[in-house]
Computed example of a mutant assay.
Amino acid sequence: MIRFGIISYAHPHALRYVPTINNSPTAEVYAISGDGSNSNVAKREAQRFKAKFYENYENLLKDEKVDAVYIAIETYRHKEVAIRAAEEKKHILLEKPIALTLDDADEIIRAARKNDVKLMVPFNPRFTTPLMKVKDMIKAGEIGELEYIYTISEYVKPPIFLEGLDLSWFLDERKAGGGGFMDTAPHGIDSLLWLTESEPKRIYADIGSKIYGFPVDDIGIAVLEFKNGVVAVLNAGWGNPKGYSYGLEIKYHLMGKEGFFDIRTAYPDFTVYQDKAEKIYWERTDVENIVNLFIQSIIQNKDPPITGEDAKKNLAIVLAAYKSSKTRKCIYL
């Protein structure tokens, strides 16, 4: 049984990952710390899961019964917390992006390697059932050689629209590294790297505060040309209006020489109609797969499916997109 410590509820993903961890037959939520935003939520959740509550992560990491940590603290504190977790020999599931800078990412990776702990950063789309099936069909040659990918991955509502959580840090570039594009594009970029089995050689992007007037960007679009010839268009950010029925939206159109895949949604859903329409996802295999594969990597002592090096490569592409948008130039990678 892998005993998890949960470090912070600053990121709203904690509300989904923590119950999933606790429902795993090979893991339990053993301790929760109240660092960062939403410490009141962390304390409430500790009571819900009958877990130890620590006011700060240092005390949690000193607990020898903790085997692994899920870190959901604000991005600007990732390096600080992840390095300390590695030094205390805790395996690390670290929210995306891995860090604010490539140098910080390197320090996290080195700390994990030096202390022989697993490091994984969760990017969700590749673990959804439709994309896993599509990947198998691409490899089987069902649509011939892949040519183009158009994706919305992901559009979500701005985090500050979520009730009951203080997510104001998402609007502070110094803490989050960017806005809506930084928040959601890493998911799409990971899926493109995985689907193409290649790396981009150049990128052009337009990213900005287009909709809400936030002090950070809310949405962006990027065109990526991959070394194997595939061209992809990625749309990502806080593109869903407050009244829109989808809180999370993912779409993929993949064109090959002999066919076309059209993924309208990555999750099975139903619609609730009351004062407003709302899409409810009744299954999230992506989160379950991420948690289970991370746990397996610990138990079986093997690399997780997304390593720290993968997460750094992802961050490099995101930062290149921001550079392209700022300079209005194509960036070669």
Rank of each mutant, 00 (worst) to 15 (best):
L119D: 05
S325G: 11
P158C: 12
V121N: 08
N22Y: 10
R284I: 07
E197P: 01
H78N: 15
K329S: 14
K276F: 03
H253Q: 12
D103L: 00
A86T: 09
R48A: 07
D286I: 06
K276H: 09
R328K: 15
T101F: 01
G239M: 03
K329R: 15
D217I: 01
N228F: 08
P200H: 01
M182N: 13
E80G: 13
A31Q: 11
E309C: 03
I219F: 08
L102Q: 02
D218V: 08
E288W: 12
A311L: 05
A232I: 04
T307G: 08
Y76S: 15
E45N: 08
T271P: 01
D269Q: 02
E45F: 02
I21F: 05
Y9A: 04
R110S: 13
E249H: 14
K251C: 08
A68R: 08
E64A: 04
F161A: 15
Y57A: 00
M182Y: 09
A86Y: 06
H11A: 13
K89P: 11
A27E: 13
F127K: 11
G259W: 04
L333W: 02
G256V: 00
G239H: 06
G256Q: 07
I295M: 06
Q47E: 15
I299Q: 10
I280Q: 05
E288I: 15
W282V: 11
A112W: 07
D303S: 14
R48N: 11
E173T: 08
G243F: 09
V134C: 07
V233I: 15
I71S: 02
T20L: 01
Y322M: 03
E28T: 12
N59Y: 10
R3I: 01
K65Y: 02
S245N: 10
I109Y: 01
K227F: 03
E107Y: 13
I221A: 14
V41S: 00
P97V: 00
Y244F: 15
I207N: 05
M137N: 01
F261N: 01
A232Q: 03
Y9I: 00
G229Q: 07
A111M: 09
N124P: 00
E142Q: 06
Q47H: 14
P19V: 05
E74I: 12
L333M: 14
I32Q: 03
I317D: 08
K90I: 11
T26G: 12
V117A: 10
W169M: 04
K118V: 15
E173W: 09
E87A: 14
F294E: 05
L60M: 06
T151M: 06
